[in-house]
């Protein structure tokens, strides 16, 4: 029979507070995820985004909002987007940018 190592190795070791690469987070109390999602949807609606565009910001895994999508599922997020849009509408603006002799580089 192979002898068991005497000390724990690699990832099996206990968390050490001074290890800068240990997985940690800073819990901060308070906050309301439903309110956060509502506010975010209102913001995007004020910018003129449509239902599908807002939903995409939750559906795409690269955005932090995806955490809500994963936790709640598509149905609940879509429903919330619809409810908010029905209340607020989405603001539309027409824009006229006047000609500029320069380039269009960003």
């Amino acid at each position: 029979m192979r002898e068991q190592p005497k000390t724990r190795q690699g990832r099996e070791k206990e968390l050490e507070a001074d290890d800068p690469l240990a997985l940690v987070m800073t819990p901060v109390s308070g906050g309301d995820l439903q309110l956060m999602a509502t506010c975010l949807i209102e913001e995007f609606a004020r910018m003129g985004l449509k239902e599908a565009e807002i939903l995409a910001l939750f559906r795409q895994p690269i955005y932090q909002t995806h955490a809500l999508y994963r936790a709640w599922g598509e149905g609940r997020v879509r429903e919330l987007v619809r409810q908010v849009l029905a209340r607020t509408g989405r603001t539309c603006v027409s824009v006229t940018v006047l000609p500029h002799s320069g380039g269009d580089d960003a």
Binding site: Q83, R87, G89, C92, V95, T96, V97
Partner: peptide, 21 residues
């Protein structure tokens, strides 16, 4: 440089919310 005009907000009501305002 630029002019922007706010237009009427668009309300696209899904069937469940068509009467919600």
């Amino acid at each position: 440089i630029v002019q922007l005009t706010v237009e009427e907000p668009v309300f696209e009501r899904s069937p469940e919310h068509y009467n919600s305002i």
